[in-house]
């Protein structure tokens, strides 16, 4: 019975895969040339790098919804009952090599995050990559035993988690007066994007680190 199911699923999946591959090869050229449109509008966006321009200007509402989804996922995890494990393993609390290395690396990672955030305006980089580096620093600090897990985020931490979404919404509401959603005035576009990206970086880093730090076993406060 199980074997029959396996064979059927594998057969159907292979057939679907072949059809998908054939469709990809057979796909006609897109009617709308998006790269040209982005290039034509790039100087209106306030940044030089096309991906950042798309993320924060042309399709800014996607990014707005994304940070909302991230916050929602973290809230969902926080809303679940705390996990009580039988074996409370303290994550390598006394490893001097790891701790020393982390103490050296964490400030460097902050620096890299700041650079990547700043670089996003004119080359690959931006809030997401910077936030991921920040989150990596947070997880590393926790693994080295230097940062306790977040069983219940305090007031400051909660403010940090929400600041990205709040700043983004504030900018969106302030710009609603001109009638279109998230269309920045040309002279302010660069500054507004940098402000949104900076707050997004902080929130993204905290949320992504939180996804790990809230889920770890040692998050249970004795």
């Amino acid at each position: 019975m199980r074997t029959l199911l396996n064979v059927t699923v594998l057969f159907l999946a292979s057939a679907f895969g072949l059809a998908l591959g054939w469709l990809i090869l057979d796909l006609p050229v897109a009617a709308v040339r998006l790269p040209e449109q982005v290039t034509a509008q790039l100087e209106m966006s306030g940044v030089v790098h096309p991906v950042t321009a798309v993320l924060l200007n042309f399709r800014g509402y996607d990014t707005l919804l994304e940070i909302a989804v991230l916050l929602l996922a973290l809230l969902g995890i926080l809303a679940l009952p705390r996990h009580v494990s039988d074996h409370q393993h303290r994550p390598s609390s006394a490893n001097p090599v790891l701790q020393t290395l982390t103490r050296v690396l964490a400030p460097l990672m902050l620096l890299v995050a700041g650079y990547v955030l700043w670089a996003g305006a004119h080359r690959p980089g931006g809030a997401f990559q910077a936030g991921a580096v920040l989150a990596g620093a947070g997880v590393l600090l926790h693994l080295a035993g230097l940062l306790p897990a977040w069983a219940t985020p305090g007031r400051t931490l909660r403010a940090g988690l929400a600041v990205g979404l709040l700043v983004f919404i504030a900018v969106a509401v302030a710009l609603m007066a001109q009638g279109t959603l998230l269309q920045y005035p040309l002279s302010w576009a660069g500054a507004l994007i940098l402000m949104i990206e900076a707050s997004l970086t902080l929130s993204l880093g905290l949320i992504l680190a939180g996804l790990y730090l809230v889920l770890t076993d040692s998050g249970v406060q004795k």
Partner: peptide
């Protein structure tokens, strides 16, 4: 750049 930005958003989500 448009699908690249969408995918970047998608990865984080």
């Amino acid at each position: 750049p448009v699908p690249q930005a969408m995918v970047l958003t998608g990865i984080v989500v």
